[in-house]
Computed example of a mutant assay.
Amino acid sequence: MAAPFVNDDAALGREVEKALEDRHRAGLEGLVGDLAAVVVNVGPDDVLPAARELVEATALTAVAALDDPLSVLGGPCLLLRDGLGADFLVKSRPPGPNPFAPYNTGAKTGPDAPARLETFVFACQDVPAYWRLQRERGVAFLTEAPIETDTFVFIQTVPSAHTGNALGCIQWKRRPGAFVHGGSRPLDLALPAKPAHPWLRRIRGLDHVATRVRARDRNAAIAEFVALTNHHFAFAVYVESLNSITSVARLGPGDYAQVFTSGISPLAGDAAAAGPTERFIANYGVRPHHAAFAVSDIEAVVAGLAGAGLGFLSGLVGSPEEGLKQIFSVMSPTTLLVNEYIERYDGFDGFFTKSNVTHLTRATEKQ
C-alpha cells in the first residue's frame, strides 16, 4: 500500500531547479519582467459593479471603457489604473466557449460561474522570441501567433491545468501601459467615480496575488510558473495545524510576488482535517483567492473601509514589533476575490510571518 502523499520542499526544490536550468538553457532568462496587469473576468452584468468595488476599496481609478484590448474575442472591458502597480482589466467575455470554465466551479459557485482573476500579464522584452522559444518547449497558447497592435505585442498561454490561470506576456512599442490602441473601440459605459476618501490615498499598488491549488499540484504549479517567468521560488510557510502551505515566488525585492497556497496533504474523507485551503478549492475551484495591496497606516485604511461598508474576515493580525500587519476582506460577490491589505514596517526584511499566515488562513474557514 502506497504511503499517503505529503508535500515537502525537497521535492519542490528539485522540480524548481530543473525548471530554472531549462529556462536558462532555452534562452529565456531575463526575457520576462515585472507584472504589468491582471485580467479579471466577471458576468455580463457585473463589469461596472466589479470595477466600482475595486475603485472604492483600492487606489485604482477607472480610466477607459473599451472592447477587450488583449483578446480577439472582444467584449466590454474597463481599464483600472493606480500608477503604483499592475493595472486591472475588468471584462466580460461574449457568449461562447470559455477555456477557464473547467476551473471555476465548486460546491458554492454553481456550474456556470464566470468570475475569476484569469490572466497575469507580465512585461516582456521580446514577445515573438518568447512565444517561439516556449512553443518549442511544448507550451500551448490561446492564439496561433502573438496579437500585434500599434502599441503592443501580446501572447497568452492556455489556462494551466494546475492553477486554472493563464500567463500573458506584453511587449510595449512606445510606452508601458498603452493598452488603448488604434483598433480599440471606446464603449459608452459610465466609468465609476473615484471617491475622495483620505484613507484611499494610503493604499498602494498590487503586492501579490495568492492562488489556491490542490496539494498534489503545488510543486508542478510553482515549477511551471518559474519556467514561464523570470521569478524564482523564495520560501514556504507550513501551517501544519491547518494542513496548509503558503509558497512565495519572487522576482526581486519590491517587485510583485506570486503566491501559491495548497494543502500539505490532499483533501480526504475528513472535511475538518482537510483544512480551509483544500476546502476552499472544493467550494470554489482552483483559483486566485486574494489580491493583496500594500498600504501605509493600515488601521486608518481598515477603519475607513469598514465605515464605508466593506466587511472583513477577521481583525487585523500582526504588529509593528513582528514587522507587518495584514487583514482579509470578505469575498467579492462579483469577482470572487478577497482583498488583502498589508503593511510592512521599516526594518522588516521578510515577506510574511508564520503567525500572520496562520491567523489569515484560519480566517478563511468562514468561506
Rank of each mutant, 00 (worst) to 15 (best):
G183D: 08
T246V: 15
A2G: 13
V32A: 04
G315W: 04
D8W: 06
R216T: 05
A36E: 06
N243E: 00
L142C: 07
V286N: 06
N219F: 04
D45G: 04
I222V: 14
S319D: 14
D255L: 11
D349G: 13
T246M: 11
Q367A: 13
Y345C: 08
R23W: 10
E15I: 01
Q134K: 15
L316K: 05
Q134Y: 10
S92L: 07
A129V: 13
L28R: 02
P69I: 08
R185Y: 04
L70C: 07
P128F: 15
P111W: 12
G168L: 00
A363T: 09
A363Y: 10
G182C: 12
T211W: 07
L228S: 10
R201A: 15
T149R: 06
S296L: 01
H197C: 12
D34K: 02
E56S: 14
T211E: 13
A3M: 05
A2L: 14
L187M: 12
S329A: 14
F100H: 07
H208Y: 13
L242K: 04
F152I: 09
V317I: 13
T334G: 10
A115T: 06
F88Q: 02
A64D: 03
D349H: 13
R81V: 02
R212A: 15
R185K: 13
F235G: 08
I264E: 03
P146C: 07
S262K: 05
F348D: 09
A50D: 03
V295C: 15
L206T: 15
F235N: 01
R204P: 06
L324T: 15
A57R: 08
A129K: 15
F351H: 01
E144M: 13
H290Y: 11
A210T: 15
W131P: 00
R214K: 11
A257Y: 11
E299V: 10
R81W: 04
A166T: 06
A306M: 12
F235I: 05
N7I: 04
S184G: 06
A294W: 01
F225R: 00
A26F: 02
P159K: 03
A57M: 00
H181M: 03
H289R: 02
I298F: 09
F293G: 01
T58K: 01
P49A: 09
A19I: 08
A308S: 15
D22L: 14
G110S: 01
A64G: 00
L73I: 10
E15D: 12
K354Y: 04
L60A: 01
D22Y: 09
V286L: 03
D207V: 08
V158R: 11
V213T: 07
I264N: 05
S332N: 01
A300W: 00
F88G: 03
V32P: 08
D8S: 13
L228D: 01
E29L: 14
S296M: 00
E278Y: 10
V153L: 04
Q125S: 14
T61W: 04
V248A: 05
G33S: 12
N339D: 09
V158S: 00
L206H: 07
S355N: 15
C77A: 02
R137V: 11
R214V: 03
R218I: 00
D150Y: 09
L31D: 04
A363R: 09
N356L: 13
D45R: 13
L60Q: 02
C124M: 02
E240D: 15
P111I: 09
G285A: 02
V38W: 02
K366Y: 01
V302T: 03
L251A: 07
L206N: 08
G347D: 03
E17K: 11
